[in-house]
Structure formats: C-alpha cells, structure tokens
Amino acid sequence: MKGRKVSRKIIAGIFCIASFFLVGLIPGPVVLWAASAERPEDIRLEYLYINKKMIPETEKKVTFFSELLPGGRVSVAGKVAGSAEVRSVEVNIDGRRTWQKVRLAQDNTFSFRFRAQKGETYGLLIRITDAKGNTNNVEGTLRLVAILDRSLYGAVQDVLNRMIEVYQRRASGSFMAYVDDSFAGEKEEYDRSVRKDMSAIHDVDIRYTLNSVTPDYKDKVSASLNFNRSYTLIRTGRRLNDQGSTAMIFRIGNGKLSLYAVNGPPLFGFIR
C-alpha cells in the first residue's frame, strides 16, 4: 500500500514536471516568429489559408479530394506581414510561366481561387513586391496543392481495409496510426480496447459492406457499414461469429483519413 502511494506520487511528480516542461516549449515558436517580425526588411506572409485551412510554414504539401472542393476550385487567402506598403502580390501555379496579380486589401490581405483538376498537383508560389521594388523569398512560399484522383468512398474503403489488415496481424502500433489524436472518447482508451481484442481473439475474419459515405464538407466524413465478423476466442478455443451495423466518423487531414469517432457497435475493440 505504501509502495503504491510512493509510486503514485512519483508518477504525479513526473507528470507535473513534464507538463511544465512541455508548456515551456510553446514559447519556442512564439519567440521565433516575434524575432522575425522585428526585422522590417523581411517581406513575408503573415499567414496563408488554403481552402480555409491554415497552412503553417512547415507544411509544404496539402492534399484535397476533388469532390470536396467547392465548385471544383481551390481558394487561397493570405496576409502580408508588417505594415509596410506593398505594391503587388502575384501568384503562380504553372511552374513560373504566368504570374497572376491578385487584389490586395488595405490591411494587406488577399485572396484568389483557381479551378483544380483531379489527379493534378499544383506548385503554388506567391511573389510579394514592396514599394521599393524588393521581393520576398518566392521559393519559400512554395506549397504543393495535390488533388487526389480517388473518391472519398474509395478512400474510406482503403483505410478500413488497412485497419482490418493490421488488426488481424496484431500490429497495435500500426493500427493506432489510423486513429486520430483527437479521437472522441480518448485515443488511449481505444488503444486499450483494441489491444484487449488482440490478446483475446485469434484468426479474425471481417467482411463489410459500405452503405453510405457522407462528408460534412469541412474536415470530417461519416461512413455507415454493415459487418460480418468471425473469430476464435483464445481462452476457450471456440469459433464465434456476429454481425451488425455501425457508423464511423473519419477526420480528413491532408488527403488522409483517420478515425475520429465510432457511433454504434464497435467494429474493433469490441471484446468486453
């Protein structure tokens, strides 16, 4: 009992220290950007949104499903940093061949849209010219905008098939790579449930029929499916089977789907 209390205090202590340490890391990027903003000679973007998603400097490629593009178009919005006068903002999506001047608002914000074809990748470049004729580091603004050739329905099927495959192989780490960090109901709890399955059952066979795939046209898609499942219970060695229907919500992030929530009987992590 005493040992348990001591170890609990140790863990709580580590937790507090680590949390403090992690919180302390947040100012890292803050300092980085603040320092940049203090140099007026820097001509750069303050922010860039592509299809209403903020694209950080570190994210060089963004991917979209063509069926989720409003009107088949990619919309780009941004703001030039600082208060210095900006003469023009131009954009290019065809390998520097043609530069299109975009309308700049008084607060140095701009936006434009372009029609995107399925299966194509566009290299988006932004050229900012200030009143003195200086330009920004154009290469630094490069973002690859890829439009997937496959459908959302096919993507849901793909991710389900891959989840089933790694689940059958008991590769819990690989399985959890398909689960979103913000999984509703707690990712760690779900991991625990899935590992419980992997310990308790063997030779799992899952067949399913996808009924509907409904996007929210923002960042999630709901998939409803019927499943038929058979497995051997390791404890008794008996072969069991069941069936049901469920709904799974996937988050769409950069063309990839990750499991966000399960509304209905669980397909994975079902052993109690």
Partner: peptide, 26 residues
C-alpha cells in the same frame, strides 16, 4: 446537395459536425 456559395441545402443523408460535445452524428 445544392449550393450557390451563400445558401447550401442538403437533403437525405446529412452530416453536419458542429463541435465535439454538440453534434458529430449523421
């Protein structure tokens, strides 16, 4: 689904996700 970029109507299988606690069900 039909939209003119300002008004959007969806009928049938409808999925609107408001927020985690309020609505994330089709």
């Amino acid at each position: 689904r039909m939209t003119n970029k300002i008004h959007t109507v969806n009928a049938g299988d409808t999925f609107e996700s408001f927020s985690q606690y309020s609505l994330s069900t089709a």
